[in-house]
Design a protein around this nucleic acid. Structure first.
Length: 494
RNA sequence: GGUCCUGUGGCCGAGUGGCUAGGCAAAGGUCUGCAAAACCUUGUACAGCGGUUCGAAUCCGCUCGGGACCUCCA
């Protein structure tokens, strides 16, 4: 390993050296989707960011247990106390579990489309009701929660006697109180800051469980505390999620963990930033959100045409996960060309082998440059998973690879050792770490070979009409013919 | 209103004190039947003003612009 991995910890707001609690094991929990409708692109960015983090940690040799939940109940919509799943179920006249299954399946398909690896454990809230009830009881026993009219609430003021509610998002309880609108008379809460652990269900509420507290359902924040603790322990390494979950969701999680176990859960908190469209956060209510399939097909009023999943992945990884990323046709088009350039480089180097028995005539400058670039890839990823910088370095390797193809750089100048390092580094960073894979839309690889052979023959015979015709034919397939001193090859059209 | 983030060349986007980020676009060159691709070269970039420093895009202050969270949201 080159250098140490450093991550920006939302808790300290500083870049810290990453030191797992129980190396080589790493526990990572990421807040997953609420499966009540299609995932939108913003969700994809978050899960893609943590996918790269997961991949890189594994690449570094850590044994990672990655837990990403599915929220299938209890996500309060508003003051009505109705949750997202049951509202949708009523709307579509389906069983809540049908909604859950439908959108869970859809979610998995989308994740696969973008080459996002599945987590090691994907627990559901409904599958952990007993554990949630246990944690509620613990919180009540410890004096951090109270029952009120069949519901159970977390008691922020009690919590603050011993802990500090708001430390993650930098909020002060007094400020929060000043800003919070007054409770309507009907509330069972002692303070507007208190949040629900268990909600008594209204008669029309369809997802409900009969417990000693009431016939009701769990609060949203609880499941994450319960499931992270169950699968990763009272203290674990990384907890992630989108920025917008920082408050109140993650703040509540910390409170629940501390209140029940005495430990605050995660050592490192990591937050991904938002996707924006024309500078404004992508969200459904603003009508500026894209569904993954719309971006791929181009079937959206804001889009001129579609983009392949790997182009989108590349586009997203070209910015740092903690920065906002703005969507535009121009930016996407530029990313498409850039991605094809990278993909062509990847395809080339995968096919290259250092020639057997070739005498080395090392060009020290070239070899040093290449080794430096390889080092830089590690440095970039070690620096808080800087995929944007990593991609920049990979493009520098692409130049070397292309130079080999055109014969401007020779194998013997690089030497076997450096060549092998370049090859393995390039492939590992593209495929294993960034999760970019080649997308071949060629109808037939063999056909391509045949046409290229035909092209070669025509070229040698100086039959230029035929040459131009074949060129056009291949271009229609998205393939560009490359005439070089060293021979004829092809590349994906950029 | 409170808390916080942010403003980089035509566009996107890295970069927290001195070391060419990178991609797209543009210009010139090499190569070529012509092209394309590739490679090489080129761009008075760091919102404005002031300060700290031998030296600042990078630190500090002010001004102006953009955004997020404070209610469900990745």
């Amino acid at each position: 390993m080159i250098g140490k991995l450093r991550v920006v910890n939302s808790l300290s707001r500083e870049k810290e050296v990453f030191e797992p609690l129980n190396a080589p094991h790493v526990g990572m929990y990421v807040c997953g989707p609420t499966v009540y409708s299609d995932v939108h692109l913003g969700n994809v960015r978050t899960f893609m960011s943590f996918d790269v983090i997961y991949r890189y940690l594994q690449f570094l040799g850590y044994k990672v247990r990655y837990v990403r939940n599915i929220t299938d109940v209890g996500h309060l919509l508003d003051d009505t106390g109705e949750d997202k799943i049951s509202r949708k179920a009523k709307l579509e006249n389906l069983e809540p579990m049908e909604i859950v299954q439908k959108y869970t399946n859809d979610f998995h398909r989308v994740m696969e489309t973008f080459n996002i690896l599945p987590p090691d454990i994907e627990p559901t809230a409904t599958g952990h009701l007993m554990e949630q009830l246990d944690m509620i009881q613990e919180l009540v026993d410890n004096g951090f929660a109270y029952e009120s009219n069949g519901s159970v609430y977390f008691d922020i003021s009690k919590f603050n006697e011993k802990y500090d509610y708001g430390k993650l998002s930098g909020r002060k309880t007094e400020d929060l109180l000043n800003q919070t609108r007054e409770l309507d008379g009907g509330s069972d809460k002692r303070s507007p800051l208190d949040f629900a652990l268990w909600k008594k269900a209204a008669p029309e509420h369809i997802m409900r469980w009969n417990t000693k507290w009431s016939d009701g359902f769990p609060g949203w924040h609880l499941e994450c505390s319960v499931m992270s603790t169950k699968y990763l322990g009272e203290e674990f390494d990384i907890h992630g999620g989108g920025m917008d979950l920082k408050f109140p969701h993650h703040e509540c999680e910390i409170a629940q963990n501390a209140g029940s176990t005495g430990k605050e859960g995660a050592k490192y908190w990591m937050h991904t930033n938002m996707l924006t469209v024309n500078g404004t956060k992508m969200s459904k209510s603003l009508g500026n959100s894209f569904l993954p399939h719309e971006l791929i097909s181009g079937d959206h009023e804001l889009l001129e045409h579609g983009y392949s999943p790997m182009t989108i992945r590349f586009f997203m990884l070209q910015s740092h996960y903690a920065s906002t990323l703005d969507f535009s046709n121009e930016a996407l088009d530029a990313a498409q060309k850039g991605y094809m350039k990278l993909a062509n480089g990847l395809r080339l180097i995968k096919n290259y082998e250092y020639p057997e028995g070739l005498a080395e005539e090392i060009n020290t400058k070239q070899a040093e440059q290449i080794n430096k670039i390889c080092d830089n890839c590690y440095h970039a990823m070690n620096d808080d998973f800087n995929t944007a910088l990593t991609i920049g370095h990979l493009f520098n390797l692409v130049k070397k690879v292309n130079s080999i193809q055109t014969g401007q750089l020779k194998f013997e100048e690089i030497g076997k050792e450096t060549f092998e390092r370049m090859k393995s580094t390039f492939i590992a960073f593209c495929e294993e770490i960034l999760g970019l894979k080649l997308e071949t839309n060629l109808s037939s690889q063999n056909l391509l070979e045949v046409i290229l052979e035909e092209y070669k023959v025509a070229k040698e015979a100086k039959n230029y009409d035929k040459v131009d015709e074949l060129r056009a034919k291949l271009k229609a397939e998205g393939v560009i013919v490359k005439d070089m001193k060293t021979g004829i090859d092809w590349a994906f059209e950029e």
